[in-house]
Write a protein that binds this DNA or RNA. Structure first.
Lengths: 210, 210
DNA sequence: CCGCCTGTGTGACATTTGTCACGACCAGCG
DNA sequence: CGCTGGTCGTGACAAATGTCACACAGGCGG
């Protein structure tokens, strides 16, 4: 435990976005007890988060990826587009190369996994606030392995197929012919080294390509 | 914020199990600041959790469901089997009727969702410690809807099929004939009102039957 | 003991899926 | 300008999948 008061230096102001209320509240509690960090706003979805960041202009913005309304990554992209200088930390369950890549493209300063030790979060916030980058080490190495080999159409088709939608229905949905859909799926299956559409979808999902 | 010290009455001793370190630490922090609750041990998987509960005999045991080694539900079942009187609260992401049913069968006193407000967790702990039950209201109503229609074999086969394993491979895995596997899948598909194995698996998963 | 359900199996058949080869169109790029 | 890659399509064929009817064993409740 740390008994040295950290309140003496200037406070780090953060906004947190996370759709699971329990986790949101708990993370806020965790950061607040550090003393040198103040949670100025909380958001339960992407749009709320974006508004909160624009309104409060915090030093650091911590966000989950998978949220209603708007993805954490989408929010990061929007902040970058508006040239806001709030630093962004992505905090997620998923150790997926595709997510990390997209996070970095969106100008995120940190990418942490929820299964890290809780104490590291506060430390990461401090590092990021000083302009450093914090990437989960496990991910950092593995990440630059394989880029997404799928084209947009392939991804789109595979996503539906992975939910059990039939080739014909996919064709109708997207305004294509059934043969074309089968061609895309065949391509995707071969690119991913899968045996069928279901396995292909599973693989793509775990890589963060879907 | 609550400024009234709750430490005057006797402390409630809890053990928490949750595989995501960040969430585990954050929940512990959240409960500790309540004052009347002490986290006596933390576990990152089911087996650790079981050992911790047996060793510390806490008043309340809070656990996630999906964890390595052993499911939170499995731990609850084992505690019931050993006639331990620690009360169990299941805290999970999934609002699935099947999970709730199994949790209650396992003698759990609480079933809460991670997207509830964080403040409610401490309150739930107090209620449960007093012998009350705490079930997420949304779930409580919806729960007694539909019982799992699948037989063990159907479930087993569907699980594999949902991961993209081929009928023939499933047959070899389970020591069945391919035709039999196809029969089970056909049955499962019709029971679930799905159009194919993939959709059937998806449906079963969202219902908590897989 | 008689049904009834589950688990297991077969065979036949229709449909869906996966593969291949091929062609057309268009955009971007050297 | 010609090449390349992505998109979209057709047709044909092989393999996997889904459906049905039927059969036989074992267990369990009436």
């Amino acid at each position: 435990m740390n008994t040295i008061p950290k309140t003496s230096r200037k406070q780090i102001r953060v906004v947190i976005a996370e759709d699971q209320g329990m986790v949101l509240g708990a993370l806020a509690a965790l950061l607040e007890i550090e003393g040198d960090i103040t949670v100025v706003a909380r958001a339960k979805n992407g749009k709320e988060a974006l508004r909160a960041v624009l309104a409060h202009k915090p030093d650091v913005f911590i966000t989950d990826i998978e949220m209603p309304e708007m993805t954490g990554l989408d929010v990061a992209v929007e902040l970058k587009r508006q040239h806001k200088d709030t630093r962004v930390i992505i905090l997620t369950t998923f150790a997926r190369a595709g997510y990390l890549r997209r996070a970095l493209d969106a100008g995120a300063s940190g990418y942490l996994l929820k299964d890290m030790r809780a104490e590291e979060l506060a430390e990461a916030v401090r590092r990021v606030q000083q302009g450093l980058r914090v990437i989960d080490p496990e991910l950092a190495t593995e990440a630059w392995g394989d880029p997404d080999p799928l084209t947009d159409r392939e991804r789109q088709v595979l996503r539906l197929a992975g939910d059990g939608v039939t080739s014909l229905d996919i064709a109708n949905d997207l305004g294509l012919s059934e043969g074309t859909v089968r061609n895309y799926l065949s391509e995707a299956i071969s690119k991913l080294g899968a045996a069928n559409r279901t396995e292909a979808a599973r693989i793509a999902r775990t890589k963060g390509w879907l």
